[in-house]
Design a protein around this nucleic acid. Structure first.
Lengths: 153, 153
DNA sequence: GACTATTGCCTTAGTTCTAAGATTCTTTAT
DNA sequence: ATAAAGAATCTTAGAACTAAGGCAATAGTC
């Protein structure tokens, strides 16, 4: 029957997806570690560089980290003097996070290096293959994300 | 120049790869959590089911967990009575991990459900598309894995 | 036979996640 | 208007995982 064959395909795809993700993540992690940053820390700085000050919740959704995790990461970046929290005038629950001067200086040197590292790590495929792969992955990810929770199975 | 365009492609691919991975992982995590398992715990049980007793180091490499992590996970599974450690006759440092009877019973019900969950989560692409995607990801991942550490940049 | 390097597992410190809680804002009903 | 319920935002506490280092056993070299 075709049912088990399809499941095998899904299972295998899950494995190679995990391994590819892990391998590339390792490159990224090593690179940012050279600047004494973890990946979530880098993600926060990068998001702030490109989007300006953000609320903690916005940051959280952007860098795919848990709500408790974002508090911890921002605490640490604040202790290093790279970002600062600011009150939100409209909502006293919420708080903005913004880069400090030294935070800007750091991320502006780390980010281009990061892009270069990823580029080098992904040279196993050519540019057009990468675009095509990206399309398929977007389809896959969007479908899966929409389906979350609706696993009546 | 084409350099920054290529970096953009790599950066975008990294983003969609991460999001797709995360979305599917969420499905998998929810499913095994219904049986009070974490993903690494499930990974250990599944590896033992299909390969028989394994050394801790073999398990570690198979499920992509840290060396401290495998000790922790096996401790917990042992406490739940799902696996047991056995001495290795040839090497007194090493130890086998094997499923217990109740471990076998559990994983034999959880695994097929797991395959089904992944299949459903990945229906955004057809079976042949999945195979093609898998090929590309394998190329990407293998290349990146081989390049690890050689980031003289 | 010692000396060094390697391998296998464990331990500890630190990072991240999940779940629950505290505070503020919003909505709805009275 | 007021109050009460519900939702959103952030933090805290405890479990899960990683990375780095440590000890013990094995293997290789002289």
């Amino acid at each position: 029957m075709g049912k088990s064959r399809r499941r095998d395909a899904a299972l295998k795809l899950w494995i190679v997806l995990s391994r590819a993700h892990r391998a590339i993540e390792d490159h990224a992690r090593l690179q940012v570690a050279r600047h004494d940053l973890t990946l979530p820390e880098f993600g926060v700085l990068e998001a702030l560089l490109h989007k300006g000050p953000l609320l903690l919740g916005e940051l959280q959704r952007k860098i795919l980290v848990s709500s408790g995790g974002i508090t911890y990461v921002v605490d640490r970046l604040e202790a290093k003097g790279l970002v600062e929290r600011r009150p939100c005038p409209d909502d006293r629950r919420a708080r903005f996070v913004a880069l400090t001067v030294s935070g800007i200086r750091l991320i502006e040197t780390v980010f281009p290096e990061h892009a270069e590292t990823l580029d080098l790590a992904m040279r196993g495929l050519g540019e057009s293959e990468q675009r095509a792969l990206g399309e398929k992955l977007r389809t896959l990810g969007t479908y899966a994300a929409e389906r979350i929770g609706s696993e009546a199975d």
